[in-house]
Nucleic acid binder design. Sequence first.
DNA 1: CGGTAATTTGACTCTTCTCAAGAGGCGTGG
DNA 2: CCACGCCTCTTGAGAAGAGTCAAATTACCG
Lengths: 251, 251
Amino acid sequence: MTAHPPLRAHHFVKVACEDCNLTRICLPKDLEDDGIKDLSKVVRRDRTLQKGETLYWAGESFSGIYALKSGSAKLVHTDRQGRETIISLVLPGELFGFDGLTAKEHRCALVALETSRYCELASSDLEPLAKKIPSLQHILLERSCEQMDQVVEQLAASQRPAEERLAGFLLDLASRYQRRGFPFESFNLSLTRQDIGHHLGLALETVSRLLGRLESAGIIKVQGKRIQLLDINGLKTAAGQPEERSASTLI
Amino acid sequence: MTAHPPLRAHHFVKVACEDCNLTRICLPKDLEDDGIKDLSKVVRRDRTLQKGETLYWAGESFSGIYALKSGSAKLVHTDRQGRETIISLVLPGELFGFDGLTAKEHRCALVALETSRYCELASSDLEPLAKKIPSLQHILLERSCEQMDQVVEQLAASQRPAEERLAGFLLDLASRYQRRGFPFESFNLSLTRQDIGHHLGLALETVSRLLGRLESAGIIKVQGKRIQLLDINGLKTAAGQPEERSASTLI
DNA sequence: CGGTAATTTGACTCTTCTCAAGAGGCGTGG
DNA sequence: CCACGCCTCTTGAGAAGAGTCAAATTACCG
């Protein structure tokens, strides 16, 4: 895999989809050039959310599919008793909003974890656009199935012990950051310990203790929200993943 | 809600989609009459699975979207360490196969829990059919998002105590059976205790004990796989759902 | 009717949660 | 620039829910 330069926020210029640095990750990924241009014409671009701001609440009516352009956000499900579950951490280039598509009403809330920008493909534009781009509906179907795969993976993970879940989470985050041009071994968590707990089904104290344990094992280095991965194979082992045969062990 | 007569298996006749008794639940639900006829022409109908037989394994290549016609099945995810999670219990009229759509390779296995029949919409027929029925892709998108909603609900439930999960599972099953014309208060589990455990993230012994506990509380009656719901409100309370205000309490 | 698989029940263990207290970090305003 | 207050994080101790292991009972299939 080739490394790309870090994705920089275009703070002052609205970039057309075809010129966006997220074109390899975001919706355009699977579209041909003409489709990207058609898409670009109707996308509402570069809206901003401040940290803690909510784009939509659960129960609000569905208005479209969104793509995160910069920053990060959490997709939060809240049950009748007020218990929160973070369904996903949303990073730049990722789509969200599918939680409102069936019922025409969102099942989750989307909350920014830092100052973030996003683009909107309004539901009213969706049908006309689908006529111009025949493959669009199928691409959206694929993306929603992809997100379901991820939730299924989480559901399966929820049966594994806490340390495996946390280690797996860190590995997943690292590779997602890497795909966006950031170093694999070092990143900042935009989630609090509480949020990580709500994502992994753990108490915040357990998250803190487990991070401490991985640190004392020399596997990671923790400085508040900054995480460094010191021993990737150790982390994979902790995540319950079979260790890759590295070059050095082949001698 | 009107009660429909129990859905009987058409053991010897292949029924066109427009004449199928599942037309209010299955894919035709959202299609106009012409669409149903077009669909009916390409659907491969009434294939059979014996109890324990597998329609597809994880890793097998995606070949289409399926609908269960009779019987029941489980969609099973198996992780690297061989731990199983039952993602969903599939009942007649429900679609499955979305787990293979993105990667073109199934992520889960589908296993019949009893002698069952199913219909197939082959992926090769999907594109031509979508041209004849413009709304088809969107309907499939809605269905996949609906299934995601259900998995999200399960993920949220996985953080709740065991008894709530089990009680919620029984209530969900009852209403799904009711929709298919069976009585709400009484049904046969096609899952073993082990499978229920794999579905809810519990040990089979815990499932057995909790069923026993609900029975001694007079909320349900358990006779092996036969379950009777004796006290719906009690069950809702056990599931952590706010009790409905019933007519009698309004006096 | 025998054998295998499923279920129940008991005793014990252990992971993770809860409650609690203290430390650290950050932004705001004086 | 420092002090205050608030939010987040860490760490400890004890409790509890659910898991594991084991054995007996029951149900089901051929």
